[in-house]
């Protein structure tokens, strides 16, 4: 079994200071028969327990969006862009006819194919459009989702704990994770916002 970290090493979300603890003790009327150091240790240990309980109980299937906008590898890029614009989303999973996730296509994938130099964000595109007379979307006209998508996609299972979801997003620097069932078929998607919302509601 993995050894638990010592209480002193736990990181609270906001590092709680001794002054915070002292101030909290002052807020409570009546004499508290405990030193600020003990109280802090207790707080951090209780926080760790709460976090473990909440993060192991909240899973991908509990927080994912089930109505997923999706495209197919042969969907024309114009239609992909239209779907993303209509749904006001920055990326969609690309699935094959059996529902298997074969890739993800996002704003970044579009931007990466739209200029002579590499463009990383919307303002980069604006800058290039203004400097170089006209915009470069024409270069990818006629192409399909399969041409631009990032593949293979990083996907997660339905029972992945929320903490792991957050770690994957951070490590892979991605903003959305398609959720697949045991057969690899798309069942939902999780965005950074979904994680933030559920953390806010539950932790």
């Amino acid at each position: 079994m993995e050894k638990k970290p010592k209480d002193q090493n736990i990181k609270a979300p906001l590092s709680i200071s001794d002054a915070d603890i002292f101030a909290a003790m002052k807020d409570i009327s009546g004499y508290l028969d405990i030193t600020p150091a003990d109280l802090k240790e207790l707080y951090l240990a209780a926080y760790r327990h709460a976090r473990e309980r909440l993060t192991s109980s909240l899973k991908a299937k509990d927080i994912m969006t089930r109505e997923v906008a999706l495209v197919y590898p042969d969907t024309p890029l114009a239609q992909v862009a239209e779907i993303m614009a209509q749904r006001d989303i920055a990326g969609v999973p690309v699935v094959d006819t059996e529902g298997q996730v074969v890739g993800v296509i996002s704003e970044k994938d579009f931007l990466g194919h739209m200029g002579s130099t590499e463009i990383k964000n919307f303002m980069g595109l604006v800058a290039q459009c203004l400097k170089e007379k006209g915009c470069k979307a024409m270069g990818i006209r006629g192409k399909t989702a399969a041409d631009l998508m990032t593949s293979p996609a990083v996907t997660v299972g339905e029972n992945t704990p929320i903490m792991e979801l957050a770690n994957i997003m951070k490590e892979k620097a991605i903003n959305r994770l398609p959720v697949t069932d045991s057969r690899g078929r798309l069942v939902g998607i999780i965005s950074r916002a979904d994680i933030l919302t559920s953390m806010y509601q539950n932790i």
């Binding site: 002292f22 003790m25 009546g30 004499y31 508290l32 030193t35 600020p36 150091a37």
Partner: peptide, 14 residues
């Protein structure tokens, strides 16, 4: 030692 002493209680408490 490793910490400070707890705060003083309010007057009504006293």
């Amino acid at each position: 030692g490793s910490t400070q002493s707890p705060p003083r209680v309010s007057l009504s408490e006293i």
